[in-house]
Computed example of a mutant assay.
Amino acid sequence: MARDGLRVSVVVPVRNEASNIEPLLKEIERALLPMGEFEVIYVDDGSDDLTSDELQRLSSVCPWLSYRRHEFSTGQSAAIRTGVKTARASTIVTMDGDGQNDPAFIPSMVEMLERTGAICGLVQAQREGRQDTGFKKLQSRIANNIRQFILSDGTRDTGCGLKCFPRSVYLDLPFFAGLHRFMPALVQRDGYTVRFTEVRDRTRLAGLSKYGLFDRLGVGIVDLLGVWWLLHRSRRSPVRVDSRDHVDHPRLDTRMMQDFA
């Protein structure tokens, strides 16, 4: 069930991506217009370029675009959380703001979530044909292998920014810096299923990468051990689904209302 008539809210965290905003927004608009009502929420995570100016300019001509700004950078997970708390739709899609995620895959991801029903807590995209440097590909392979060995979450590419999930499911997850990298394991911990879909990777439109795969390896390892602890010491009861739920969109937890000030 959509909130405020919106089928989906797309959340895009960015830091110093001024030159990538307009071309990516045009792609998002083309992809989402056939889906009905939507909104796009950019979260400027403490940029010191013209990102904020560009978002202000474009929001004046795109009625479906809004943005929030962090006065200083608090990290990708915090930026995503700000966007999700601001969102008005009950279905959320997150994506990177550098153009490497193709918005053309958003409709099929939303349909997969809706078709699977309330038992599905996440549709996770996994990239094919990675366009990163050889070093970043090696870094990604090592990080994903370590994560898979410890968490066994069935995900080979948790670093892909394209994710689709119910807003209420996300807001029930424990928040910490790095949450976006561990969503499959934590969603499964809460008793939901995770669906995967293959997407093509692209080169970034312009500029340099701002958020590394594990940002700082030491922090990534600490997060990984913390998630392992959550999986083994704080497991929640499985989600109960009746026979009517397999065709329904995940129902909104009415306690999770917009509380972003």
Score class of each variant (00 low, 15 high):
residue 3 R to W: 10
residue 5 G to F: 07
residue 6 L to A: 09
residue 7 R to I: 10
residue 7 R to D: 00
residue 9 S to T: 05
residue 12 V to E: 03
residue 13 P to Q: 00
residue 13 P to H: 01
residue 14 V to D: 02
residue 20 N to S: 14
residue 20 N to V: 00
residue 22 E to V: 00
residue 24 L to T: 03
residue 29 E to P: 04
residue 29 E to I: 06
residue 32 L to V: 05
residue 37 E to D: 15
residue 40 V to H: 03
residue 44 D to F: 03
residue 47 S to G: 07
residue 52 S to C: 07
residue 56 Q to K: 14
residue 62 C to I: 09
residue 63 P to G: 13
residue 63 P to H: 14
residue 78 A to R: 14
residue 79 A to R: 02
residue 79 A to N: 01
residue 81 R to D: 13
residue 83 G to W: 05
residue 83 G to A: 06
residue 85 K to S: 02
residue 86 T to M: 14
residue 87 A to D: 01
residue 91 T to Y: 01
residue 92 I to W: 07
residue 93 V to P: 04
residue 96 D to P: 02
residue 99 G to E: 04
residue 100 Q to R: 15
residue 105 F to Q: 04
residue 112 M to Y: 04
residue 115 R to P: 00
residue 120 C to H: 01
residue 120 C to T: 04
residue 122 L to T: 00
residue 123 V to G: 01
residue 124 Q to V: 08
residue 124 Q to S: 12
residue 124 Q to K: 14
residue 127 R to K: 10
residue 128 E to H: 06
residue 130 R to S: 11
residue 130 R to K: 04
residue 131 Q to T: 11
residue 136 K to P: 04
residue 137 K to M: 11
residue 139 Q to M: 08
residue 143 A to G: 05
residue 144 N to Q: 15
residue 151 L to W: 07
residue 172 D to Q: 15
residue 173 L to S: 11
residue 175 F to S: 15
residue 175 F to M: 13
residue 178 G to D: 08
residue 182 F to M: 12
residue 188 Q to H: 10
residue 190 D to H: 13
residue 200 R to M: 12
residue 204 R to C: 13
residue 206 A to D: 13
residue 207 G to P: 12
residue 207 G to F: 09
residue 209 S to F: 04
residue 218 G to N: 14
residue 220 G to P: 02
residue 220 G to Y: 14
residue 221 I to C: 08
residue 223 D to M: 01
residue 225 L to T: 08
residue 225 L to M: 14
residue 226 G to Q: 10
residue 226 G to Y: 12
residue 227 V to L: 10
residue 233 R to G: 00
residue 237 S to N: 03
residue 237 S to R: 12
residue 237 S to V: 06
residue 245 D to K: 11
residue 253 D to I: 07
residue 254 T to K: 10
residue 254 T to M: 11
residue 255 R to W: 04
residue 261 A to C: 08
